[in-house]
């Protein structure tokens, strides 16, 4: 199978998702034979070529104009590169960048597409994917017809270590053709850390929609205090303006690895789980027995956080 992988390189580094999908591509290649191509495009990306040792060929496009992964330009580059190279499987991360590119490529090449992939594999001559949909509540095994497809792979689905092989086999340098700049990258805005840095905390109390309103944050705050930790949140809490964006864990926030992650009223949608699944100990409390968070947690409690958390605060105080 001829597999193409699109790694994410910006702000001077290759992002972990790139190695995750590269490792996955390698595993498929080992089963089906064929070759693995990496399309490395960006400004100053040439120095990263040796990080893609698994690639049979690195297609390199290093150009001044390619700063900031502007979707319009990259969509067109991808299409130009792929259309004459007979790709069979094209892998992207289900990320901010991948989601701006995969759909375009799929429609233009007339390839089927599968999003939210936890897994992609070749089985009995068929290309199959397993997708985690409905906020992590449903899994779907999907057959990709004609064995040609574009897949968006959820971050954290595959170990990055497998993709991290150093070396260089073959490099083909590409040139940038004239492309209209309908979307122009201006700059990256890095958050000022005036707030606490949740990636540096040993103990995090994560709050989700189940906290219901801003006043109730006190309940969680008290627990964080007695534990000597800090508050983190899933995205909806921040969209409501109850906590700043710096506290978000997951796709649009930070990836955290605290010793303890106590999850309160968080359902556990994949975009949140990707940011906290590697915590040392995960304890989740949620009223919904089917909440996907219970697949990631080490300990789970089906119950009301407003009953359990105050009791837990008292219990911890008594033991200290």
């Amino acid at each position: 199978m001829k597999i193409f992988v699109f790694p994410e390189v910006y702000q001077g580094e290759v992002k972990e998702i790139s190695f995750e999908i590269l490792g996955l591509a390698q595993e498929i290649k080992e089963k089906t034979g064929g070759d693995l191509h990496v399309l490395l495009a960006g400004k100053g990306v040439k120095e990263f070529v040796p990080q893609f040792g698994l690639a049979d060929k690195v297609l390199l496009l290093d150009n001044e104009k390619l700063e900031g992964v502007s979707p319009f330009i990259y969509q067109n580059i991808l299409f130009q590169v792929l259309k004459d190279r007979a790709p069979e499987l094209i892998l992207f991360g289900h990320t901010s960048i991948g989601m701006d590119l995969a759909g375009f490529v799929a429609l233009k090449l007339n390839f089927p597409m599968v999003a939210f992939c936890k897994n992609v594999k070749a089985e009995n001559g068929h290309l199959m994917a397993t997708s985690l949909i409905c906020g992590g509540k449903i899994l779907a095994d999907v057959k990709i017809k004609d064995n040609k497809g574009v897949c968006l792979v959820l971050p954290g689905s595959y170990p990055a270590e497998k993709g991290k092989v150093e070396g260089t086999k073959e490099v083909e340098e590409l040139s940038l053709s004239e492309i209209e700049e309908k979307i122009k990258f201006e700059r990256f805005i890095i958050p000022e850390v005036e707030d606490i840095d949740i990636t540096k905390e040993n103990i995090l109390v994560g709050v989700g929609r189940g906290i219901q309103n801003q006043e109730n944050l006190e309940v969680a705050e008290e627990l964080a205090q007695v534990l000597g930790g800090a508050l983190a949140a899933s995205r909806p809490v921040v969209d409501q303006g109850w906590l700043p964006l710096t506290r978000v864990v997951g796709r649009s926030g930070k990836s955290v690895k605290p010793k303890l992650y106590l999850s309160l009223g968080i359902s556990g949608a994949p975009e949140h789980v990707e940011g906290m699944k590697d915590a040392g100990l995960i304890i989740a409390i949620n009223t919904d027995p089917n909440a996907p968070i219970f697949q990631t947690a080490h300990y789970g409690v089906v119950g009301d956080i407003f009953d359990i958390v105050p009791a837990l605060v008292e219990e911890i105080k008594a033991r200290k």
């Binding site: 900031g68 309908k182 122009k184 990258f185 700059r187 990256f188 805005i189 796709r251 990836s255």
Partner: peptide
């Protein structure tokens, strides 16, 4: 546009 880690990319869209 939002990137991981609370980073924003600023873009001008025609």
């Amino acid at each position: 546009k939002e990137f991981p880690g609370g980073v924003y990319g600023e873009y001008k869209v025609e």
